[in-house]
Nucleic acid binder design. Structure first.
Lengths: 242, 242
DNA sequence: CGAGTATTTGATGCAGTTCAACGCTCGTGG
DNA sequence: CCACGAGCGTTGAACTGCATCAAATACTCG
C-alpha cells in the first residue's frame, strides 16, 4: 500500500510549507496510488490529455518538447516535490512531455477530482496557482538565459540553479549535489550543440568554477559562479507541496 | 466613471468565455478603476510588489526582463484581454516588467482582494489558474523557438503567433493586423540582434510570406508561413476574461 | 529645417555548429 | 574471460549563421 500523505517523505523537508491536518486528510482522499517508473520512461506526453497528475516523490526527470524536425528543447528538470501535469489538469492538454531520467516514484492523483480543489479547498487551489506562477517565473528566466546569455554564462546559470534547487531540498552534501543527466540534456535545455556544451563545461572546470561528472555536480566557487551567471544568490522561498 | 464590467468592451469579443451575471457583479466590486497610460510607460516593474493588478482593455504592451549587463529579453506581447500581474498577486513579486507600447487603458484591481477570489468564487479562481497555465504553455513554446529554431523559422513563428492572437480577438482585417512594435522589440523577443532581425524580415518579405511595416503586419501566405515555422494552424480556444 | 529615432545595407569577425574521430566504461554473449 | 558493440564524453578542424561595426537612408515631430 502506498504511503499516506501523513507520512509523505517530502513533508519533512524544510523547503515545503506545512500542511494542516485537515489538508493532509483531504489530500489523502485525492491520492489514488503510487507509481514507480524506470529510467528513460516517458510518463506524460505532449498533446496528451492525461487522466493522471503526479507529484514526484523520489528520483529526477525532465520536461521537454520536440520540434517536428526532431530538435528537442528541454524546458526544466524535475526534482522531488515537483507537481507534474498542471497543464493537463487545467487546460486538458499537456504542452510538453515529461520523462524519468532516474528511477522515479510518483504520487498519483486523479484529474477528475481536480475541480474539487477549487470548490472545497481554496487554500490548496491557491497553492496550485502559486506553483503555476513559479513555473512561469522560471520559464521567463530560462528564456532570458537562452536568448541573451553566452554559452558560458548560460551554463553557469544552469548549474547554479540546479545546485540551489537541490540544496533547498536538503539534497546537497556540502558543495556537491546529484545531477543525473547527460550533457546532451543540458545542451538541449540551453539551446547549445552537444559539442559546444562539452567544451563550455571544460572551460568552467578549468576556471575552477564547478565540475560535473559521474552524475555529480560540485560547486567550487559559488560566488564567482553567481557573478559570472549574473544571478543573485538568495535564500530559497518555501513552497507548497502537492 | 469607469465602465462597468457589464459593459466591458472585451466581453463582446467571441474569444472570451461568457461570464455569469453573478460573476460580473462580483468582478465589479473587485474593480477599483481604470488607468490610461501613455506609450513607453512602464507600469509594473520586475522585482516590485505591486498593490495593483490589471487587465488590458485597449492598446498593446510588452513584458520584458533585463540582465544587469543591459541585455533585454522580451517575454511576450500584451494584447487586449490579457491579465497582468498574476505573479505579483500570487508570489508577491513580479518576475518581469510590463510596459505600454501604445496608449493603453487598463482595468485596475486591488491585489489585497485577490484572496477573496479563491475563498468565494472558485470558478474565477480556476480561471486564474487557467490563465497561468496558458502562459506557461506559451513560454515553453517561446523557449523552444529561441533555443531550437533558426532566425527565419523563429521569425515566421513569431509573426504567425501575433497574427493568430490578434485574429482570435477579432482585431484582424482580412490578412492584416496592427502590430505596433519596433524591430528591436521582436529582436529582443527572439534573442537576435537588431541587424539580423532586419535582414531576416527582408528575406521573409522577399519570399512573399509576410510583410511588416508601419505597425502593420500582413500575412501573405499563411500556409507556407506555418509550414516554415513548424507551427500547426489550429482554431483558437476560448479563454476566460479577468 | 534640424534632431532624434527607426530602418536598411554592406563589410568583417567570431561564437557556436557541424563533421569526424578516438577513448572510456559497461553490459552481453560466445 | 575476453571480444564486441553501444552509449557517452572528449577533442580537433573546418565552416557558417549570426553578431558587431559602420554608415547611409528614411521617418517624425518640434
Amino acid at each position: 500500500m502506498a504511503t499516506k500523505c501523513t507520512n509523505c517523505p517530502l513533508k519533512r523537508r524544510d523547503l515545503f510549507t506545512n500542511m494542516s491536518k485537515d489538508d493532509l486528510a483531504f489530500m489523502e482522499k485525492f491520492k489514488v496510488g503510487e507509481l514507480v517508473i524506470d529510467p528513460g520512461t516517458p510518463f506524460l506526453m505532449e498533446g496528451s490529455n492525461s487522466p493522471q497528475l503526479y507529484t514526484a516523490l523520489h528520483g529526477m526527470g525532465l520536461r521537454h518538447k520536440t520540434l517536428s524536425s526532431g530538435e528537442r528543447q528541454v524546458l526544466n528538470f524535475v526534482f522531488p516535490g515537483d507537481f507534474i501535469g498542471l497543464q493537463a489538469g487545467v487546460l486538458g492538454e499537456m504542452g510538453h512531455s515529461v520523462e524519468a531520467t532516474t528511477r522515479m516514484t510518483l504520487c498519483v492523483f486523479d484529474r477528475s477530482e481536480f475541480w474539487t480543489f477549487f470548490k472545497h479547498n481554496p487554500e490548496r487551489a491557491f497553492d496550485l496557482t502559486w506553483l503555476a506562477a513559479v513555473e512561469e517565473h522560471f520559464l521567463g528566466d530560462a528564456l532570458m538565459t537562452v536568448g541573451q546569455r553566452s554559452a558560458q554564462e548560460a551554463t553557469a546559470w544552469a548549474l547554479l540553479r540546479v545546485y540551489q534547487r537541490a540544496d533547498a531540498l536538503g539534497l546537497a552534501q556540502g558543495n556537491v549535489v546529484r545531477f543525473p543527466f547527460k550533457q546532451r540534456d543540458l545542451a538541449d535545455a540551453l539551446g547549445l550543440s552537444l559539442v559546444h556544451m562539452n567544451k563550455t563545461l571544460r572551460r568552467i572546470r578549468e576556471n575552477q568554477l564547478a565540475t560535473w561528472s559521474n552524475d555529480e555536480l560540485k560547486i567550487l566557487d559559488l560566488k564567482r559562479l553567481a557573478e559570472f551567471a549574473d544571478l543573485e544568490l538568495e535564500a530559497p522561498k518555501k513552497r507548497p507541496l502537492f
